[in-house]
């Protein structure tokens, strides 16, 4: 049995979230380390004090103006608001293309965000275990188009590999990149989302905190997604990929 107890385990113990298997070891540790036991007791007391101090807020009637805020209907497009939030960086992104942005919440957003959250979380088999050129050749064949892996090394992301995915009604491809700290970025290729009229980069939020930059041209829909990167960091990557894939 391992009697060494980590700080994270002590924190989990404070919150009643330590696993049953480790509880005995943690309690033995606390019995032998009075300072830690004192800290744990103090932390628990902090929690109680804070909950008690703010408990009454839950019973306050909700001001009508807050309910009104929730009833408001969209006034501005998502893209305009994203630009406001991002400022200069987003304007730069918009400047990439003079074409119109895709209509909000294009289906590629949901598809690519879903693919990202399913496969980027995978540690053992995030992608097909094959050589880069082989993977790209195989995906190109299945998607009936030239699938390329843009070089994102300059932004600090190395190519990990790719895999074939079901899209909505046709095959799609997912390429995965990884940063030094294990942050993952995926590039989704969805030929079924192609659009006659080319679009510029647009930002959207997918499921589970996944952020997505996407653009469509007459050959394919592309989406750069990550749950690990901030919007700004993702924008840098998206610009880099967009530049390389632009025809």
């Amino acid at each position: 049995m391992n009697f060494l107890v980590s700080e994270a385990e002590l924190q989990a113990y404070v919150d009643g979230r330590a696993g049953a298997a480790r509880r005995g070891a943690i309690e033995a540790w606390l019995a032998a380390h009075p300072e830690d036991a004192q800290r744990v007791a103090a932390y628990r007391q902090l929690g109680e004090q804070w909950r008690e101090a703010y408990a009454a807020v839950l019973d306050e009637p909700v001001p009508p103006e807050l309910l009104d805020a929730l009833e408001e209907r969209p006034r501005r497009s998502r893209l305009v608001r994203a630009a406001g939030a991002l400022g200069v960086a987003a304007l730069l992104a918009l400047a990439v293309s003079l074409h119109l942005a895709p209509s909000p919440a294009s289906p590629i957003v949901q598809r690519s965000a879903m693919a990202h959250s399913v496969y980027a979380a995978e540690v053992q088999h995030p992608v097909e275990a094959r050589a880069k050129s082989e993977v790209l050749a195989w995906l190109s064949e299945r998607l009936h188009m030239s699938v390329q892996a843009p070089d994102l090394e300059r932004a600090g992301y190395a190519f990990l590999g790719g895999r074939l995915l079901p899209g909505e009604s046709a095959a799609a491809a997912l390429l995965m990149y990884e940063g030094q700290n294990g942050q993952r970025v995926t590039l989704y290729w969805g030929p079924e989302f192609r659009q006659e009229r080319e679009t510029g980069l647009a930002f959207a939020r997918g499921e589970r905190g996944t952020r997505v930059y996407y653009w469509l041209d007459d050959e394919c829909g592309y989406a750069i997604a990550s749950a690990d990167l901030s919007q700004k960091e993702l924008l840098v990557v998206a610009l880099m990929a967009h530049e390389q894939l632009e025809k």
């Binding site: 929730l70 408001e72 919440a105």
Partner: peptide
């Protein structure tokens, strides 16, 4: 809440 109202269509996927 204002933002939630604007983006309510994304809440489902969240």
């Amino acid at each position: 809440l204002e933002r939630a109202a604007h983006e309510v269509s994304l809440a489902n996927a969240a």
